[in-house]
Design a protein around this nucleic acid. Structure first.
Lengths: 243, 243
DNA sequence: GGTGTATAGTTCTATATAGAAGTATAAAAC
DNA sequence: GTTTTATACTTCTATATAGAACTATACACC
């Protein structure tokens, strides 16, 4: 039976939630893993089952855990790649979801722009991996992406043959660099296509483009990836509900 | 003690939540009201206090209620007007929030466009109130709005002198027509400014504009207002967190 | 008038317990 | 081999209860 650490002025269920969150952050529980049952946890930490449930509910609320009636409690596997679909309406003939192909235009090591370095939380003038990609559906370009990865954290990524890099990057980060993207902040605006982007995306200069900036972080909150994606606004629609 | 209505295969806390939600929908509990305490509710409906708490928590989650430790449980007062600030970065010199002034350009009764009628859930060819507004900060236009309100629901709104209509419409709907906006669906894209919008917003033709479509609904889910707002993309930035 | 104090009412935290409902696996029956 | 049954384990629902923490109000006191 582990004791509950932390400020004991805080409620027990919160301290328990902190303890469980720590296990996810330090990767002793990995995405997809089943964690012990609520009764076992309650016993291990010496709290009532109801208190354990409250802690678990809080972590479900944070998006860290997923519970399945009768099966168990699992570390949620973050999947963002579908998040693009909340933005762009790529749909096949049958309206099914499809993941755009990826064509890597460039990958190099360079000094990061100061704004990127700042957002990634590394010192000004640091080097990082720069990658430009074009995303296409049926050969038609729909998204131009600029990506920056900090070094040395992503050093192993450089060893991967670009030909082996599929459209989904986060599983690759996970497998090759043990970096798990847990959440991301996105910020969205629009601008007119300049000559370069117009050529890339095969639209007229001045065509309105949606610009999505994304900063991806791991469970600990460290920034892992900076990404800017641009696509023709015409294909773009973002929906949300407010209350 | 009221009995718990509804399908008794559903959990009690859900049926209790349904019963409480109904009181908000039928306006016997209005926004800002304090509702009975959890113990009173538990007794009234013949459930355990814990079950009542679970029902209340569900409604808090839906955004219908707000609880304050030691004070009570209140019907949440929906306030959307700040929702604009999640989108546009209007900030004064001190960075304080400010509500853009409003200039009403037109108000008339017309046959609704079929798409608007469809979204408002009224029959094709129905008449409604059309209103065009310009939102300005320090005299500079930043948002052009087109608004449609269904008739006869909003008949009393026509009696209001446009000069008496301030920037915030929802409180006016509430006071004059007893229509409370409880939630809204927004959908967002971008387009190039045509000649009319360019003149209105004082930008060059072809300038990228953000387009926000909003469908506002009451607690019962009836559509109350259709609104399309357009502003220069340059002043626009939408932020969200995904996980 | 202003300050502290008691009191009642509220939500929040925590415990203990019982059984329902869903899932997976192994054993039994056919 | 296939289907059914039993079993164990999981989360979910529901009850009952006690006290902590917070808020507002009325009252006594100076």
């Amino acid at each position: 039976m582990s004791a509950l650490a932390g400020d004991n002025r805080l409620p027990r269920y919160q301290r328990l939630a902190d303890a469980l969150r720590a296990r996810i952050v330090d990767r002793s529980w990995k995405p997809g893993d089943r964690i012990p049952s609520e009764n076992v946890i309650a016993e291990q930490f010496g709290v009532a089952p109801g208190t354990a449930r409250q802690a678990l509910a809080a972590l479900v609320d944070e998006g860290l855990l997923e519970r399945q009636h009768g099966r168990g409690t699992f570390v949620r596997r973050p999947s963002f790649d579908q998040s693009l679909f909340r933005f762009f309406r790529f749909s096949g003939a049958a309206g099914e979801r499809l993941i755009p192909e990826s064509r890597i235009l460039r990958r190099s090591v360079d000094v990061m722009p100061s704004e990127v370095a700042r957002q990634l939380g590394v010192s000004e003038g640091s080097e990082g991996i720069a990658m430009d990609r074009l995303r296409l559906i049926d050969g038609a370009p729909i998204l131009a992406e600029q990506i920056w990865l900090p070094l040395p954290r992503f050093q192993p990524f450089l060893a991967i043959d670009p030909a082996d890099i599929g459209p989904l990057l986060y599983p690759i980060y996970d497998a090759s660099c043990e970096q798990t993207v847990a959440r991301a902040e996105e910020s969205l605006t629009a601008e007119a296509a300049d000559a370069t982007l117009a050529r890339l995306l095969r639209v007229a200069r001045g065509t309105p483009l949606i610009v999505i900036d994304r900063l991806a972080r791991d469970y600990a909150g460290d920034a892992l990836e900076w990404r800017r994606s641009r696509g023709p606004a015409e294909r773009f629609r973002y929906r949300t509900e407010i209350r």
